[in-house]
Write a protein that binds this DNA or RNA. Structure first.
Length: 492
RNA sequence: CGGGGCGUAGCGUAGCCCGGUUAUCGCGCCUGGUUUGGGACCAGGAGGUCGCAAGUUCGAAUCUUGCCAUCCCGACCA
């Protein structure tokens, strides 16, 4: 089987596609722009989901589920939001098929079964959720309302990319209602911190927290907070967003409550989400030409044991030792697989588990057992070492922690090297076309300038970092006065 | 939606320009055997509407037309 993957340097897109397809994370599907997430990829998503879900609950949220379909009239209630998504909606117009009289054995849409009102397949759930919240919220005592849902959404994108942009994707979307503006803003910032903490500490991908400019803001939001990550090709990726929605949705759906002074007020809202796109970020931030490199904390499989044997006798001896190690590892909460299948040889297995990004591999033969040692290979650095079999599970546990930290440090160093200041347009373009990465540059704050820069350079303002340093300077394009640098980059 | 590419076995492909036996090769799969410290080897075997439709022709994977699917680049976007 050809499992060779294209080199990063040759063709970054092809390298990425090869990684996703050949590592067993996902497949193309029969539906254009959609993707099949295979068990290995789905387990990864489940691991990520479990960590996030726990964090949401720790911060007072509960899960619920709202319908996939949104009646058009509800969808269009918040005008900016509707307009923002209008161009990428899948729409249900009929509810029945019938036999096609002109083509035996074929079906056709029954024109008699036209829906009175079209249903929009949710591209995001604000509309249906706020229409529901309206009936749940009457008093300040009903607030805050802190709900999350794990769901799929559909955005009919013109161009798709595995994990990064598929027509249907899995995500979580939190939707909260608050009595005061301040509380809602705090919620927005709190959830951004939850995301940043997760992406950095679990995915080992450093992020920059910041605010979106008006151009890049979520349709219907007052303020969009985001975390921005850096991929190995120097392009940025938005890894998560948290929106302060003001009273926009409350007004559109008439969600009011009686405050302590017995006065009607509109609630203040937030929404926040991360998606399976994070898996794309994970792949592009860490992997190499041998395959995926997955951070131990969320890897579907943390340890694989490969036996090397000659004949049934030695196999039995190694099997016994391997099972013992497995028991010890499982006791420490390490996910482990013993691959003693006879249909592939050790070399094949080594390459296969490297492709799949398993953080640690043990290779164990009679030669090792006789000396009470085992060969340990770590995926991140590809280093091999010989380790004593005494307390091997504990050694592996600390090695996993070391790998997690090392991956983060490496990604952080890479990212930090790629934040560069530019003070002239020439410098700016030169950096974009060469080194890539984030470019810290002055901007006059005007949307039309941002738009012009985007047209000329294909770079967008990724964010205005939180707690940004104030510094006088001149706009990179117009030369007008500016009080701070913002981060530009070409992005996914 | 614009530009480009591709469609031949589960996967990857040759053949197409210049039509002509039984459609090429590799991987994978099945059977048997030898192997096993970085993607094993030998022998035998199974597997095909050549994307679909129409046309040209004695004859089409190959030429013509239409359609479908898909990938890449761009606009759009998480």
């Amino acid at each position: 089987m050809s499992k060779e993957i294209t080199s990063r340097a040759t063709d970054y897109s092809q390298w990425y596609n090869d990684l996703v397809l050949k590592s067993g994370l996902a497949d193309y599907s029969a539906v254009r722009g959609c993707m099949v997430i295979k068990p290995y990829g789905y387990t990864l998503w489940e691991n990520m989901r479990d960590v996030l879900d726990k964090k949401f609950k720790e911060t007072g949220h509960v899960n619920a589920y709202f319908p996939l379909f949104i009646p058009k009239s509800l969808f269009e209630a918040e005008e900016k939001n509707a307009e923002g998504f209008a161009k990428e909606c899948a729409i249900v117009t009929h509810y029945r098929l019938k036999n096609d009289p002109s083509k035996p054995g074929k079906l056709m849409v029954d024109p008699e079964a036209k829906l009175e009102e079209e249903l929009i397949v949710r591209p995001t759930s604000e509309a249906i959720i706020w229409n529901t919240y309206k009936t749940w919220i009457q008093s300040y005592r009903d607030l805050p309302l802190l709900i999350n849902q794990w769901a799929n959404v559909v955005r009919w994108e013109m161009r798709t990319r595995l994990f990064l942009r598929t027509a249907e994707f899995l995500w979580q979307e939190g939707h909260t209602a608050h009595a005061t503006k301040q509380e809602a803003v705090e919620e927005t910032e709190k959830m951004l911190d939850v995301y940043a903490e997760f992406v950095e500490n679990y995915m080992a991908v450093p992020v920059i927290k910041g605010l979106k400019t008006a151009n890049e803001r979520f349709a219907g939001a007052e303020e969009t907070y985001c975390i921005e990550a850096m991929m190995q090709d120097g392009k940025a990726l938005q890894a998560g967003t948290s929106h302060f929605l003001g009273q926009n949705f409350a007004k559109a759906f008439n969600v009011q409550f009686l405050n302590k002074e017995n006065k009607q007020e509109f609630v203040w809202a937030t929404s926040w989400g991360v998606s399976t796109r994070l898996i794309g970020a994970l792949i592009m931030a860490h992997s190499d030409d041998q395959g995926l490199i997955l951070p131990p904390k969320i890897a579907p499989l943390q340890l694989v044991i490969v036996p090397i044997y000659k004949g049934e006798e030695s196999k039995a001896v190694i099997d016994a030792k391997a099972h013992q190690i497995m028991q010890d590892c499982k006791r420490l909460g390490i996910s482990v697989k013993y691959d003693n299948h006879d249909n592939t040889r050790p070399g094949w297995k080594f390459a296969e588990y490297e492709l799949k990004g398993v953080p640690v591999r043990l290779a164990m033969g009679m030669r090792d057992l006789e000396q009470n040692v085992v060969e340990v290979a770590r995926r991140d650095t590809k280093e091999k070492q010989t380790m004593s079999l005494d307390n091997v599970a504990e050694s592996i546990q600390s090695l996993l922690e070391d790998i997690q930290q090392n991956m983060y440090n490496k990604a952080l160093a890479f990212r930090n090297e790629r934040i560069t200041k530019a003070d002239t347009w020439e410098e700016f373009m030169q950096l974009l076309d060469g080194k890539g990465g984030f470019i810290a540059a002055h901007w006059n704050g005007k949307p039309e300038t941002e738009e012009k820069i985007k047209e000329m350079s294909k770079a967008t303002i990724r964010c205005i970092p939180l707690n940004n340093k104030q510094e006088q300077g001149k706009c990179i394009l117009t030369g007008e006065e500016s009080s701070q640098r913002v981060l530009f980059a070409r992005a996914y």
